[in-house]
Amino acid sequence: MKRLLTKLYRLVIAVIILIAGVTFERTGLIELLSDPYEYPVILELLIQHVYIVGLSMLIATIIGITAGIVLTRARFRKYAGICMYIIGLGQTIPSLAVLALAMSFLGIGFKPAVFALTIYSILPIARNTLAGITAVPPELIDAGKGMGMTPMKILLEVEIPNAMEVILTGFRVALIINIGTAALAYVIGAGGLGDLIFTGISLMQTDKLLAGAIPVTLLALFGDFLSELLGLVLISKGLRLSNR
């Protein structure tokens, strides 16, 4: 059964690639990509896109995880609800509006884009860090305390490793939203693959549109794959075993 499914899966993939190839040829995408003048531009935009995503994700991860950890400390736990509400507001605002708001006081270009994307990505990471640490069985923390572990040791050796899977899920969601939203950064002059997509739309030029849309899609898939790999590195084998 499983082998049959694998065969079917491979067949479907092959058909999709075939159809895609034909479509690309018809729309002139392949011609565009092989154009020595266009090809470096696409590559540059891709790097720009990755740079915006990478920087904003880095800042968002640091802030999000820190916020999540601080809000689970006994002293600050009572503020967790209200803080999550405020961070949550940032996500309720449509992504384009966040970009527009960022532009209104940071001007146009790279900075407001990174700022807006950071704000947008903090919530899933912070929320999952909070939820993950809260969900660590109290017996484990009790055992740690009872054996004389300091609060810092308990955080680093018990709470975070046991919450890692939930935290990574938050990271993955944030990353994928971020990659998608970063395509809008072009609107406030930050460049990225959105450049190709929006130009393609304006000029009704399908090959350009696809030259932007396909890399964004692949980038999102790669982000998902990267999160998976990160899970293998960061989540303890013991936890993966117990979830099976």
């Binding site: 017996e139 009790d142 055992a143 054996m147 018990v158 490793p161 046991n162 303890s236 013991g238 936890l239």
Partner: peptide, 22 residues
């Protein structure tokens, strides 16, 4: 308090083992 707890062996139910550690 930390020294006190290190001086006293503490055994609880099996769920108290850290699943992330060998």
């Amino acid at each position: 308090v930390v020294q006190l707890r290190q001086r006293l062996g503490y055994v609880i139910q099996a769920i108290g083992l850290f699943p992330n550690k060998t």
